[in-house]
Simulated scan of single mutants.
Amino acid sequence: MDIKVILTVFATVFVAELGDKTQLATMLFAADKSVDKWAVFAGACLALIAASGLGVLAGGVVSNYLGPKTLSVVAGIGFIVIGCWTLWRA
Rank of each mutant, 00 (worst) to 15 (best):
V56Q: 04
G67P: 04
L87Q: 08
A16W: 03
R89M: 11
F14R: 03
L46Y: 08
R89K: 12
Q23H: 08
I80F: 13
A90S: 14
A58F: 12
A90H: 09
S63L: 05
L66V: 06
L7H: 05
I82A: 02
V56Y: 10
I82Q: 02
R89S: 13
D36V: 05
D36G: 04
V5C: 09
G19C: 05
W88P: 06
S34N: 14
T8H: 07
A44E: 06
G76C: 05
L71Y: 09
V40M: 05
S34K: 08
G59R: 00
L66Q: 05
N64T: 08
S72N: 11
K37I: 14
G43R: 00
A42H: 02
S72I: 12
K21A: 15
V81F: 00
D20E: 14
W88H: 12
Y65L: 12
V9R: 02
D36E: 13
G60T: 03
K21W: 10
G59L: 02
K69D: 11
G53H: 01
V81C: 00
V61S: 05
I6A: 15
T12D: 11
A47V: 09
V35A: 07
K4T: 13
S63R: 01
I49Q: 00
F29I: 13
G78L: 00
A39C: 11
S72R: 00
K33T: 15
I80W: 03
G59C: 04
V62K: 00
F29S: 13
S34A: 11
L57Q: 08
W88K: 04
A50M: 12
L57W: 11
G55M: 03
I3G: 10
T22F: 11
I3L: 14
K4S: 14
W85M: 11
V5D: 15
F10H: 06
V62G: 02
P68R: 00
V5E: 15
I80A: 11
L48P: 04
